[in-house]
Each structure stands twice: as structure tokens, then as C-alpha cells.
Design a protein around this nucleic acid. Structure first.
Lengths: 147, 147
DNA sequence: CAGCGCGTCATACTTTCGCATGATTTCTTC
DNA sequence: GAAGAAATCATGCGAAAGTATGACGCGCTG
């Protein structure tokens, strides 16, 4: 968090410097407004993107989780997940496994590589004491992880 | 990441053009730079947020609610089995698949070779329209084949 | 009896899984 | 600001799973 702020401030300083420099040297009066505009635009577009990713994305994620289930058993999943030390991402992938998707398809669905899916799967299987995906799905349902 | 940069640069170019155009045509009035700045800032902050949410966090989740009624258990299995043209042996193996057993374990359980299990599995998967055992289990439950 | 469905098995081949290991990055937390 | 958790990705390897094809025996049935 501090890192972003730092980089951000640094960029701002660079911009200011650059702006003054350019203005005082070769891009004088008539273009100054344009320059200012561009710089401000860049600055605020960056801020907007930053805000969008940092602040709005998590909210969207929460919506994803809470909307679909119609909320009969959400806290239960969470409790079971927590108890087993399974991360949210792992559970997410486990759910797709239970839907019969291959690792490749899961990767495409979640926009991550197949390798990543495999990693999550392995960890989840390990935590579930399962050695195959079918077994993992079964255990997941038994333990209240999956509906 | 590259995509965003590209779009970002594009937006920048568009802005420069637009800005110069507007400046030389109808907004040359004596508005202060600050007003331009604020307007552009607002505009691009919004754009940035839009970009951030649109491009950097494209996530969706499709969740369905399947309702497997588990009341009449045996006759229904038979009916579904018959309807799908699945033999008893195939269903038997499918049940063990759903229990998370490997082909080898199934073979040992039923005293047949692993190859035989594979054959039955392939045929059953084909009749279920499944390409993976996890998918087959899911379809089996949806169709009332498996409890 | 000839044909058919079913169960059994094999061989060969391709694809997918699962495991181990290590690296990088981001975020949180103390 | 150091440390840990979490997510991401890669590579390599062996083990499963899945596909295709052919074959054999058994029981039923027209």
C-alpha cells in the first residue's frame, strides 16, 4: 500500500518537474494548456485505474460470492474452509472441479494458467486428504465445503 | 497488462487531438487552465475507473442450483439407467467412480481387470455425454442415476 | 443356428492429472 | 521494513485416465 503511494507521488513529482521544464524551454504559452490537460488526464486516469482495481474489484468479488448461493449455506462453507485451512481460491477451484471441468477449462474460466490450477488443486487435495479429483469432490461434500 | 497500456496510450492520443481541436475552435475563451484541468481530471478519473473495473477485473461466475430429489431411490435409478441405455455393470462401475475410486481400485473391487473398467467407463461416459469422470458423476447425479 | 447384447480383456496411443520444486509478486501484519 | 500468507506461473516427470480397435465367450431370441 505504501509502495503504491510512494510510486504515485514520485510520478507526480516527475510530472511537475517535467512540466515546468518543458514550459520554460520550448513549449510555451499556446500549448501549455494542452500539456497541462494531457498530464492531468494521465494523472487522473492512473488514479482512476488504481482506484478501480484496488477499491472496486474486491467489492465485485464479494458480490460474486454472496449472490450465487441464494445464501442457505455460506457461513458453513466458510467455516469448513477455514477449519481445513483451505484458501478461498482453492475452494473456488474445487467448486469448478466438482462441476466436472478439466484443469484447462478451469484455467480458462478463471483467467489463470493451467499450472496454477494444478497447484491449487494439489494443495486442496492434500488438505482434503484426497488423491484424485473425484475423491476430493466427495470429501468436499462430506465436509460441507461443496453444496 | 500490455493491453491496458495500449488502450491507455490510445486514450492519451485521442485526448491530445481532442484537446487541441477544442482549444482552437470554440473553447478559446478566457477560461482558466484550472477549469480545463478539473474537467479533464474528472473525465479521465471516470475513464480510469471504468478501465480498471472493465479490463483489470474481468470476473464472472455462473452458478446454477441443481435440485436432486432423493426420494424414490431404486426404481428411479433403474428407469434412468434403462432410458440412457446404460447397462447394470456400467452403472455399478459408475457408482464406484463416484466414490472416488481409481480404475485400478474399481477393478480390484469387482475382480476384473483395469482395462475392463476403462472400457465400461468409456462406454458409460459416452452415454452420459461426459468426457471426464468428474463430469460423469455430475451428470449421473443430475439424471438420477446416482444418489 | 445365427445374430445380438453384454461382459470381459488386450494392445497401443494420446491426453490429462497429480506431485515436487522453485520463483515472483502482492498484501497483510506486526 | 521484515516476515509470512496467498496467488500466480513454470518445468519436468511419472502415473492415471481416456480413446480406438479388435477379440472371445455366454446367454438369449427370432
Amino acid at each position: 500500500m505504501r509502495k503504491q503511494v510512494l510510486i504515485f507521488g514520485l510520478a507526480g513529482g516527475v510530472l511537475v518537474t517535467l512540466l515546468q521544464w518543458t514550459e520554460f524551454h520550448f513549449v510555451v504559452l499556446e500549448h501549455s494548456v494542452a500539456i497541462y490537460g494531457v498530464l492531468i488526464a494521465i494523472l487522473f486516469a492512473g488514479t482512476g485505474i488504481w482506484l478501480g482495481t484496488r477499491l472496486l474489484a474486491p467489492r465485485e468479488r464479494i458480490v460474486e460470492v454472496s449472490v450465487p448461493a441464494a445464501v442457505p449455506s455460506f457461513a458453513k462453507d466458510e467455516a469448513a474452509r477455514e477449519r481445513l485451512g483451505i484458501t478461498r481460491r482453492e475452494l473456488e477451484i474445487l467448486e469448478l472441479v466438482a462441476r466436472g471441468l478439466s484443469n484447462r477449462e478451469i484455467g480458462e474460466t478463471l483467467f489463470v494458467s493451467e499450472n496454477t490450477v494444478k497447484t491449487h488443486c494439489s494443495r486442496a487435495f492434500d488438505k482434503l486428504g484426497a488423491r484424485r479429483r473425484t475423491e476430493a469432490v466427495l470429501r468436499g461434500k462430506e465436509l460441507g465445503l461443496l453444496s
